[in-house]
């Protein structure tokens, strides 16, 4: 794989009380790489993703993003998080703000841009996701697909080094999925490092460099999309791939 590591997570464990959700997971993402994470619900894939920007506190292990140790108490986490974009299953747009307001809030409050600068960057980000003409609309006036694209614009406006996608299309009607995947594909072509938790196997086949299969809090198997989807070596992977391909 080319390029140096943008994300370097080592030995991530996560306990919720007696529940052991992540059992020593390693995940390294190189520059320009798209890593796709699949697995049954409850396998820990979302938790792993959320450990990468410390929305979830790992019980142990280390997370370096762009060389910054996220678990070091001296790290300015809010500053570091600008470099890690995140897109959520339920969009999580701010309903009381316009699309542009959603995109520019962190630019103004965290990146310290003036309103004019932030607006300019915000409009550029909205243009990248094909929503330049929706800047003044509130989330309630947008379709699910448009909302998710605004959410992507909100993240990329901060010029992150890596983007984390947590089931970005699971809450969308089928006819709206394509527009979001299209934006993700553009992003991938621009060279953005991405970690995608999703069930969109078609997208994984076309766009992923590497596919990880997780189950019960561990990475069971990883490889190229072809290797994982066509000839998985592990029984659990085969069973899971078989299940999701049956419908």
């Amino acid at each position: 794989m080319p390029g140096k590591a943008v994300v370097e997570a080592r030995g991530i464990h996560k306990h919720y009380g007696a529940l052991h959700v992540l059992k020593g997971v390693d995940l390294v993402v190189a520059e320009r790489e798209l890593v796709f994470v699949i697995g049954p619900s409850g396998s820990g894939k979302s938790t792993l993703l959320r450990c990468l920007n410390r929305l979830e506190e790992p019980s142990s292990g280390s997370v370096l993003v762009d060389g910054v140790d996220l678990l070091d108490p001296r790290t300015d986490l809010n500053h570091a998080r600008q470099r890690i974009g995140m897109v959520f299953q339920s969009f999580n747009l701010y309903p009381h703000m316009t699309a542009l307001g959603n995109v520019t809030l962190a630019l103004r409050k965290v990146a310290g841009k003036s309103r004019a600068e932030a607006d300019e960057l915000g409009r550029a980000a909205l243009a990248r996701v094909g929503l330049a003409d929706r800047a003044g609309h509130t989330p309630g006036e947008l379709s699910g697909g448009q909302q998710q694209r605004v959410a992507i614009a909100r993240a990329i406006a901060l010029e992150p080094r890596v983007m984390l996608f947590d089931e970005p299309t699971s809450a969308l009607d089928p006819e709206l999925v394509g527009s979001v995947l299209g934006v993700m594909r553009d992003l991938r072509e621009s060279g953005m490092a991405m970690v995608v938790v999703s069930h969109e196997m078609g997208f994984a086949r076309n766009a992923a460099d590497r596919v990880l299969f997780m189950d019960h809090g561990s990475i069971v198997e990883e490889g190229t999309p072809a290797a994982i989807f066509e000839s998985p070596s592990q029984q659990r992977t085969r069973a899971f791939i078989g299940q999701i391909q049956r419908h």
């Binding site: 929305l55 809010n78 600008q82 995140m86 999580n92 962190a106 909100r154």
Partner: peptide
């Protein structure tokens, strides 16, 4: 207010 609103805000670096 849904937890996702906090998470979205915090994930973009807001304190």
């Amino acid at each position: 207010i849904p937890k996702g609103q906090w998470e979205a805000a915090r994930s973009t670096g807001l304190s």
